[in-house]
Computed example of a mutant assay.
Amino acid sequence: MPEPDQRLFFLLQQAAHRLRVAADRRCLAAAGITTAQLGALFAVREGGLTQRALAARLGQRESAVTAMVTRLSDAGLLCRRAHPSEHRAVVLELTRAGEEALARVTPEIEEFNARLRAVLGEDGFRHTAEAVGLLASREW
């Protein structure tokens, strides 16, 4: 039997790609959005985010988030409101269509997580989520 692959970074990258493709397929079918857009919508739903704050929350460049916000706004899922205290900034808000998109995609994400739990077991799922969360929160 061959030794387990010790290239953790490669394995994480491969798993992330396969999981993202599968999750994108589900999200696109359910609500016409990608998982990246879903993450942005979930973050905006928490309230009070500017595009700069959204970029920081998602760990992306502001230019990439600006393009994503434009696409989500053009699709009617987000709107921009004047910031109450920063005259050049805008606050992002979900529209009714954005809330409906989240409602349509939520069962798909729950089913996807259930499939992950079936593969990893409940303890494995929890430990993996904690470990990946730790990796995602560090500055490298």
Rank of each mutant, 00 (worst) to 15 (best):
E3G: 09
P4Q: 13
D5E: 13
D5C: 11
Q6V: 11
Q6R: 14
L8I: 15
F10S: 15
L11T: 06
Q14F: 15
A16Y: 09
H17Y: 13
R18D: 14
L19M: 12
L19N: 11
R20V: 11
V21D: 11
A22G: 10
D24G: 07
D24L: 06
D24A: 05
R25S: 15
L28H: 08
A29M: 06
A30T: 00
A30K: 00
A31Q: 05
G32K: 04
G32D: 01
T34K: 05
A40M: 12
L41M: 05
A43S: 11
A43T: 11
V44L: 07
V44E: 03
R52I: 07
A53K: 08
A53R: 12
L54P: 01
L54S: 01
A55Q: 02
A56Q: 14
L58E: 06
L58I: 04
G59C: 06
A64F: 09
A64W: 09
V65C: 04
T66M: 06
T66G: 10
A67P: 01
M68D: 08
T70I: 10
T70Y: 14
R71S: 12
R71A: 11
L72R: 03
S73D: 15
D74L: 09
A75E: 09
A75M: 04
G76T: 02
G76Y: 07
L77V: 02
R80C: 08
R80F: 06
R81V: 08
A82G: 10
H83E: 07
H83F: 08
H83C: 09
H83S: 06
E86Y: 07
E86R: 14
R88H: 14
A89L: 09
A89C: 06
V90C: 12
V90L: 10
E93A: 15
L94R: 04
L94D: 04
T95L: 05
A97I: 01
A97K: 08
L102E: 04
L102V: 03
P107V: 05
I109G: 07
E110H: 14
E110G: 05
E111I: 03
F112S: 01
N113G: 05
N113P: 00
A114D: 01
R115L: 06
L116Q: 00
R117D: 04
D123G: 01
D123W: 04
G124N: 00
F125E: 01
R126N: 00
A129V: 08
V132G: 07
L134C: 13
L134T: 14
L135S: 08
A136L: 13
R138Y: 12
E139Q: 13
